[in-house]
Amino acid sequence: MDTVVADMSAAQITIVAFGCGIGALLVGAVGIGGVVMTPSLLLAGVDAHLAIVSLFVAFTPTVYVRVYLLNKYTKCVPWMVGACCGAGAMFGRFVARFLVRAL
């Protein structure tokens, strides 16, 4: 498999692993943690485009797991409000993409 990880040193891989682990821990416990993960990828020398795309693709399944675990252990997920908010977010994203492309 052709991947940028093959060219990375052990220290760089450690930075990525540590940053993602700490960031995800913060996301799981407090809700905000992306602000740690992206800089750690950039610090490891990953290209900004690639870092963001990879982070989005790799972290979304983790978010599904997070919702499942939150529902299982804390039972605190407000599904109705969440669905409404999620629909709004997807709509907003669609509108923003449309505006950016249209211009």
Partner: peptide, 17 residues
């Protein structure tokens, strides 16, 4: 996305979450 990078991110992020 980069496959190897995704693998590292997913595994450690899953643990952290």
């Amino acid at each position: 996305p980069d496959g190897g990078l995704c693998l590292i991110i997913t595994s450690f992020a899953m643990l952290g979450v």
